[in-house]
Simulated scan of single mutants.
Amino acid sequence: MSSWVLPGAEFEELLRSFRHRAWRWECQGTYRQPAEAEPWRRWRAGEPDDLTWLRPWLDQVAAATRAGRLVARVRVFQEPPTEYQLWQLDVGRANVAAGEDVRVLTESRARALGLPAHDFWLFDEARVALMHFEDQQFAGTEIIASPGEVTRYRNWWGTACEHAVPLLAYRHDLIGRRR
């Protein structure tokens, strides 16, 4: 297996340089990224958010999709969703508006389908970036390029995409159930 650990800056370059498709499997109930701390606090307090903190990502997604490249993710949601995941349902609308295909799969369904319990990106169906976290904060990425291993992740990608629902539909259904 070919692998190495990349710090954040080098991983960011992978996110900019993919050629056709970048797909994320996101399965933690909560992420504690420093850039999200204040926006999350504002959301919890019912204060408005101009999404300035998210603008670089949204611009990157919009540029990629304008160039014909796909940026997508499936988020695994607990039942009921964590407070962080509820926040992501609100914030995620901006991701979708920027062109990102964001979908949701419940944790019980993901387990039943045999999908992994670790986060990763799949780039151009040729490289996998396993994401490592410490105390719910991003700590680095391990790159896998071994064809056999990458095939396993591609299969997981296909299964997840087949069973996940679009974020906005999940959000609409969840809000409807909570009324």
Results as ranks from 00 to 15, higher is better:
A129D: 06
E100I: 04
Q136D: 15
L70W: 08
R41C: 05
G148M: 08
R44T: 13
R69L: 09
F77V: 13
R69P: 12
V61P: 09
Q136S: 10
Q33L: 14
L54Y: 11
A67T: 05
A94I: 09
V150H: 04
Q88A: 06
R103G: 09
V96Q: 00
E83F: 00
A62I: 00
G68L: 10
A98K: 03
R109L: 15
S146C: 12
D101R: 15
L70D: 14
R103E: 06
R73W: 10
G99F: 03
L15D: 00
G114F: 10
L113P: 08
L58M: 07
R66W: 02
P116R: 06
A129I: 10
R93P: 01
L86T: 06
R32I: 00
E36I: 09
G148N: 05
A72I: 02
R41D: 08
W121E: 06
L58H: 02
E125N: 12
E26D: 12
V128R: 02
A112R: 14
A117L: 10
W25M: 09
R66A: 15
F120P: 05
L122M: 07
W40L: 15
E47F: 02
R73M: 05
T52W: 00
V76N: 04
R69D: 07
R69Y: 10
Y31V: 07
